[in-house]
């Protein structure tokens, strides 16, 4: 009866890691370093990079994909993936604009209906994943096509313009010193803060991680895993609706062809931010950094006059690097 479950070397190793984690925040350290390196590189190459106006522009440019990536992070944390978010956003975008302009609805009602449609699509994804136990990849590939088709049928391939000012509110700016900041950027950052809070400070957030990490263990501890997944997909859908509103504000039109590659861009942001595609580890702060990395590289390469295709090349290399690091870390821990 004298034995205890102590293994001194294991404990010591774990303690060292815990200290490292607390000081450096391991999972977001890599992405943060990459962001800083890119920032330093471009501020050396171009004196226009490190200005308030330019940095505000970067945030503005990542506003839509960044918001999509918040929902994507939630889904990926549960070990899912959402290919449909760009198409859902496009549908919300066309609904909000078309209902307000073509149908002459109250703009706020049009926004509400657009948000509702996006949340509904999220719920559909969640329902198919939980009740039929279909793989999220296939479910969202299906809903991607459905939402895409609905967008084009509903809009009749027409771009909606002449929007009421309520729809483009988040494109408006206010000034901090010399810098103009859009309300949309602020909304995105607030949404990041909210989801960070939910994920890190509430029981529901813990359960999201647990379901992605070990669904069986989560179920056995009494977590209602299906209901949780359904909520996650529906919440993600609502967030895509907010992204749709930001897209309207940013472009000033309802374009049925908008957001077609944004699904992959949002996955890129999540992966660059250090969230594991296997679920259960990562956070939205990383996703924000990941989205900013893409934004900074795009912006910086434009500033120094490089062809935009190099941005795609570099993003591709970074994605491979990010998943490799994730894989290596996972393997070492097993």
């Amino acid at each position: 009866m004298t034995t205890t479950v102590v293994e001194p070397d294991t404990v010591r190793r774990a303690n060292t890691r815990a200290v490292l984690r607390q000081v450096l925040g391991i999972s977001t350290l890599g992405p943060l370093a990459a962001l800083f390196l890119a920032g330093i590189f471009f501020s050396i190459k171009s004196d226009r990079f490190l200005t308030g106006t330019n940095l505000s522009l970067v945030v503005q440019q990542v506003m839509v994909v960044g918001t999509l990536a918040i929902g994507q992070t939630l889904v990926i944390l549960t070990a899912g993936i959402d290919l449909s978010n760009g198409a859902i956003m496009a549908l919300g975008n066309i609904m909000m604009t078309s209902l307000a302009v073509e149908s002459g609805l109250n703009p706020y009602l049009a926004i509400a209906l657009g948000l509702l449609a996006c949340a509904g699509f999220g719920l559909l994804n969640g329902g198919l994943v939980t009740s039929l136990r279909l793989p999220p990849f296939i479910v969202t590939l299906g809903t991607l096509n459905i939402a895409f088709a609905l967008t084009h049928i509903y809009s009749d391939e027409q771009t909606v313009s002449g929007l009421p000012s309520e729809l483009t509110y988040f494109g408006k700016t206010f000034s901090i010193g010399q810098t103009d900041v859009t309300y949309g950027s602020v909304l995105m950052l607030l949404l990041f803060a909210l989801i960070w809070y939910v994920l890190s400070q509430t029981a529901a957030g813990r359960h999201v991680y647990a379901v992605g990490d070990n669904p069986e263990a989560a179920r056995r501890t009494g977590i209602q895993t299906r209901r949780l997944l359904l909520t996650v997909y529906a919440a993600a859908g609502l967030i895509y609706g907010i992204a749709a509103l930001l897209l309207v504000s940013r472009t000033g039109v309802g374009d049925p062809n908008a957001g077609q590659t944004d699904n992959l861009d949002s996955i890129t942001a999540v992966v660059l931010g250090g969230t594991s595609l296997f679920g259960g580890r990562g956070n939205v702060v990383g996703t924000l950094i990941g989205a900013l990395i893409v934004g900074v590289i795009r912006n910086g390469l434009q500033l120094i006059g490089t062809k935009s295709i190099y941005q795609v090349l570099i993003t591709g290399i970074l994605v491979i690097a990010a998943v490799s690091v994730d894989q290596i870390v996972r393997r070492r821990n097993q």
Binding site: A203, R206, H207, Y209, A210, D213, N214, E216, A217, A218, R220, T221, G222, I223, G280, R281, N333
Partner: peptide, 26 residues
């Protein structure tokens, strides 16, 4: 309470979170 053979814990969560998983204290 039941303990299962296949280590029914969430590996990425910390010890305290695993102990209170599904029964968190607010």
């Amino acid at each position: 309470e039941t303990v299962y053979q296949d280590l029914a814990v969430a590996p990425a969560l910390d010890i305290a979170s695993n102990m209170f998983l599904g029964r968190e204290i607010r």
